[in-house]
Amino acid sequence: MKTKHTLPQPFKGIVPPMITPLKDETNLDIPGLERLINHIIEGGVHGLFILGTTGESTSLSYALRHELVARTCEIVDGRVPVLVGITDTAAIESLRLADTAEKKGASAVVAAPPYYFNLGQPELIEYYEYLVERLSLPLFLYNMPSHTKIIIEPDTVKTLSKYKGIVGLKDSSANNAYFNNVMNKMKGRSDFSLFVGPEEIMAETVLLGAHGGVNGGANMFPELYVKLFEAAEKGDVLTVKSLHGIVMEISSKLYSLGNFGSSYLKGIKAALNIMGICSDYMASPLHRFREAEREKIANNLEEIKSKMLNLKH
C-alpha cells in the first residue's frame, strides 16, 4: 500500500474535484495527470477528490476508474488526503472501487445516491447503511440532485451521521436554504465535515460555519481558492469580497460559454490545456470545446491571470 494521509475530524479546507486527463476513451494522459496533481498540491490545497462529476466518473470505463485511483495515489504519495468517488448504480461496483481505493492508499470515499431508481429516504438510508457496513474507509455523502434526481434530506444526513464510518457531506445542490438547514441540524456535531461544491457560494457558507469547498476552479487556480477559504475561516470579509470577485470572474468567463449542459467542465478542461497542464479530451458523450470557444477561453484566461498576479503581492 502506498503512503496514506489520515483524515482529521473535522476535515477542512479546499479539496479540488480533479478533472480526469484523458488521451482518448480508454487511456489516461499520464504526464498531464502528474503535472495536474503537482500543480494542484503546490497551490496549498487540503486534499484531492477524484472521480466526481468534474472527473467525468460516470463516462469512464471501470478499468480506467481503477487505474486513475492507483496512479493518483502513487503520484500524490501521501502529500494530501485522496478522496475517491465511488458513485454507481451497482453497489457491488462501488465496493470494488472502494477496495482499490483502500489498497492504493486513499483516505476516504465519496458516494452520491444511485442515479437510476428514484429512491425514497428510507431506501436511501438503507443503501448507505449497506455501503458503510462493508467499507474500510470513511465515507462522505454526496448530495447532487441535479444528476441523481434524489435529495439527501437534512434529516437523512443527521440520521446517517450517527454511523461511525460516515464522516461528512459534500453538497452540490447550490441550494443555500438546504445547506443552511443541514448546518443547523448538525450544529452539535463538530466532527462531521460539511463541504459545498459550487465555488460561487463557498466563501459565504464557510463564513457561516461550513468546513470548506470542493471547487472545480481549484484545478486551475488552487492558491486563489485556498486564500479565499482561509479569509472566510478567519472572518476577513474585506479579503473575502476581493477574492470572491475573481472567483465570480472565473465562473462567468470560463464556465458559461455556449449552450451546453457541460460548459463548466469544457471550460476547465480547455483552460488547463491552454495553460499547458494536460489534455482537454473529454469522454463520450461529452466533447471538448471547438476552436471558437477555445479562443474565447484563452482571451478570458489572460484577463483572469492578470488579476491573479495581485495575489502574489
Rank of each mutant, 00 (worst) to 15 (best):
G267W: 03
S136V: 15
S263N: 04
V237F: 15
F195N: 12
K170F: 01
E303L: 13
R65L: 00
N299L: 04
V82H: 15
P113Y: 05
A232C: 01
D24Q: 07
A231N: 03
E200G: 11
G13I: 07
K162W: 02
P198V: 09
Y225Q: 05
E126L: 06
E230S: 08
E293S: 13
L141Q: 08
T159I: 11
E303Q: 12
L272N: 10
K305F: 04
I277C: 01
V15R: 09
L238R: 13
A106N: 08
G261W: 04
A108C: 14
T148Y: 02
K23S: 07
R294F: 09
V167Q: 10
K23F: 10
R134P: 05
L119K: 11
T54W: 00
K103C: 08
S94E: 13
G120I: 04
G47C: 07
V240N: 02
A210S: 15
T26E: 14
H313F: 06
T26H: 12
S146N: 08
M1N: 11
R290Q: 11
P145W: 12
V80C: 03
I50P: 00
S193A: 11
K305L: 15
V82C: 15
A108N: 14
S256T: 04
L36A: 06
E129R: 07
L265K: 01
F192R: 04
P8C: 03
L243Y: 08
L119S: 10
Y178G: 07
Y281E: 05
T205H: 14
N175D: 15
S107E: 08
L135K: 08
K23D: 08
P145N: 08
K307L: 11
L28S: 06
A111T: 09
K234R: 11
I19A: 00
Y142T: 00
D29V: 15
G235R: 08
G261C: 01
F11G: 01
S252A: 13
L207R: 09
V226R: 10
S107L: 04
G217I: 00
A231Q: 02
P81N: 12
Y128C: 05
A177Q: 08
K4A: 05
V247A: 04
A231E: 03
L119G: 07
I14M: 01
E199N: 09
Y116A: 03
T72R: 09
A98G: 13
M1Q: 10
P222G: 06
L208A: 15
S61L: 02
L64A: 02
